[in-house]
């Protein structure tokens, strides 16, 4: 048997520059690209081109009712939209709805998550039932609320609103929209938060109680900090989603009485007004706002963009 001793060389120069990729590696790259190509092509074709096209349209006067007057107008559309009080009302309404409903959802969602996580009886039942609002078509739920708050037909209107018709007044309408939105999306929030709760080790909570923390302190000092990434992701998802609110408003008020959201405004300009130039301008503005919200969440709060982790790669 040979006994060898190797003097440890301090550094070794790489030999022969770049090594050719082996067959396996090349095949892996090819396969990777091949597998992703269809998904990437579809996504880019249906979003990339239209986005570019919509920016182009937003710089034109283009009304389908008067196609002959189509012309390049630069930023005129933006000036028109941004100096329009309807736009700002809709923008304010959207922001209000987003902030209030997401805030309520966070509180309720956290409560629901804790219930689903900790309940001693009927855990399966609670989890199943909670998914119902998530699964139900938004329009269906919106109709349910609509009828509930319609005078005479609706038990809620009859019971709570007296003689008035809440869906014909601005503030009651807004609160009903928030109610519908919160009901529908709290379960989703709760599920995301529950996944975060599952990451809080039981031992940590036990240790905290041994250290003398009461239930509220355990929640605020241990659970919430550990769950922070999950909370931020849930908030990011829901904020961006809430900002696109459309279905509920469409059914509940059709945007009457200053309850219109920016998405409603865009829809009205496009489908009802057939004004592609203004519609596109609004689209671009919504897109910019959403990008800003995402930017604030990711850069300022340090939300981990979902899917960005490469943890499971190798």
């Amino acid at each position: 048997m040979s006994q060898t001793v190797t003097e440890a060389p301090a550094t070794t120069e790489p030999r022969g520059g770049k090594a050719a990729l082996s067959e396996g590696k090349k095949a892996e790259r090819r396969l990777g690209l091949l597998l992703c190509a269809p998904a990437a092509i579809v996504m880019l074709a249906v979003t990339g081109y239209p986005i570019a096209y919509s920016i182009w349209l937003s710089l034109q006067r283009y009304d389908l009712r008067f196609p002959a007057e189509r012309q390049f107008v630069g930023l005129d559309n933006y000036v028109a939209v941004l100096s329009n009080s309807y736009w700002w009302t809709a923008f304010g309404t959207t922001m209000f709805l987003t902030v209030v409903s997401v805030a309520i959802e966070l509180v309720l969602g956290m409560a629901l998550a804790l219930i689903m996580h900790r309940t001693l009886v009927g855990r399966g039942l609670v989890r199943t039932v909670t998914l119902v609002p998530y699964g139900i078509v938004t329009v269906v739920a919106a109709f349910s609320w609509f009828y509930a708050w319609t005078p005479e037909t609706g038990y809620l209107a009859n019971a709570l609103a007296g003689d008035g018709a809440p869906l014909t007044e601005q503030w009651p309408s807004l609160w009903i929209i928030i109610l519908a939105e919160v009901w529908k999306t709290t379960p989703f929030m709760a599920l995301l938060l529950m996944a975060g709760l599952a990451l809080v080790p039981d031992d940590l909570l036990k240790a905290a109680s041994m250290d003398g923390a009461n239930a509220w302190q355990r929640f605020t000092k241990v659970m919430v900090p550990v769950m922070k990434p999950a909370i931020l992701v849930a908030l990011l998802f829901r904020t961006l989603d809430a900002f696109r609110i459309f279905d509920n408003i469409f059914v509940l008020t059709k945007g009457a009485n200053d309850t219109s959201s920016v998405s409603m405004q865009t829809y009205n300009n496009l489908i009802k007004g057939l004004n592609l130039g203004i519609g596109s301008t609004m689209s671009v503005l919504i897109f910019i706002t959403v990008a800003l919200i995402a930017f604030v969440f990711i850069k300022v709060f340090g939300t981990a963009a979902p899917g960005s982790d490469q943890g499971g790669k190798r």
Partner: peptide
């Protein structure tokens, strides 16, 4: 890209897609 699309306001696409 897919993250971007997941967060994208659908209504922004409605106008160009319509056309």
């Amino acid at each position: 890209v897919s993250l971007l699309i997941a967060m994208f306001p659908q209504i922004s696409l409605v106008t160009p897609l319509f056309n």
